[in-house]
Nucleic acid binder design. Structure first.
Length: 225
DNA sequence: CCAGACGTTGTT
DNA sequence: GTCTGG
DNA sequence: CCAGACGTTGTT
DNA sequence: GTCTGG
């Protein structure tokens, strides 16, 4: 799955890679992004121009009674994404990209409570995008709350020893088709939700400092020697 | 028809 | 909103 | 994901 | 144990 990630590229690089401007000036590099926080997400605006906005991680469906449901909606299974009531509509019209430099997974040691954290990134530390969905929900005060979820798939050979599931990573030539809300070729959209190639990724063990979300520094992604 | 759920992961 | 279960 | 809290009334 | 907050 994916329950923690990092985004630390410079603002200018993010805007360049995703061909989209930040809509608000809220960005700071973050090595420890947990669910429930507001982070940069790329989506198409009404004028069909892509922009980067701050959305809260943990999808709250438009029909939800309260926003607590978001704590359980940090990931969406690609296998059932066009069936689940909470994800079906967003999959059809509210797809988004979540910029990232890497993500964290915890490997459970069998028969113990021990969990060892790993950092997973692309081979040359390139910035990339998770495939995601977003939705909006009307808060009691009348304001709209925008939230997102990260789509997961089966682990590739690199991740398998660490964890059963991994987030879907898209290549840049897929961005436009994924974001376009008018794209209703759902078969080909679902076809994009595959494990990223093992040979393009790296995974290594890190210190448990990442466990605490108040820890946030480049040291978090240093390999354990 | 109305009521109630709507989710994932991991663990058992 | 939409689907499933009763 | 992990860490940390988990409660009410009334009074200051 | 379970939920909330980060």
């Amino acid at each position: 799955m994916c329950g923690r990630y990092a985004l630390y590229s410079g603002k200018e690089l993010i805007e360049k890679v995703f061909k989209a401007p930040f809509k608000q000036d809220f960005y700071t590099p973050n090595y420890n992004i947990p669910p429930g926080t507001t982070n940069p997400v790329v989506l198409l605006g009404k004028a069909r121009e892509a922009g980067i906005s701050g959305l809260r991680w943990g999808l709250v469906p438009s029909f939800a009674k309260d926003d607590k449901i978001g704590f359980n909606m940090i990931n969406a299974r690609s296998e059932t994404i066009d069936e689940k009531p909470s994800f079906q509509k967003p999959f059809q019209r509210k797809r988004c990209l979540i910029p990232a430099n890497g993500f964290y997974e915890w490997k459970k040691i069998e028969g113990t409570d021990t969990k060892i954290p790993f950092f997973i990134r692309l081979m040359e530390d390139e910035i990339f995008a998770f495939a995601g969905l977003f939705d909006s929900w009307q808060q009691p005060n009348g304001e709209m709350l925008f939230t997102y979820t990260i789509i997961t798939t089966t682990a590739n050979d690199l991740l398998q020893p660490i964890h059963e599931r991994m987030p879907v990573i898209l290549d840049s030539d897929q961005y436009d088709n994924w974001l376009n809300p008018l794209n209703d070729d759902y078969e080909s959209l679902i076809g994009m939700l595959k494990p990223y190639p093992t040979e393009k990724m790296r995974a290594y063990r890190i210190k448990p400092d990442v466990n605490k979300t108040s820890n946030n520094s480049p040291d978090l992604i240093n390999p354990v020697v």
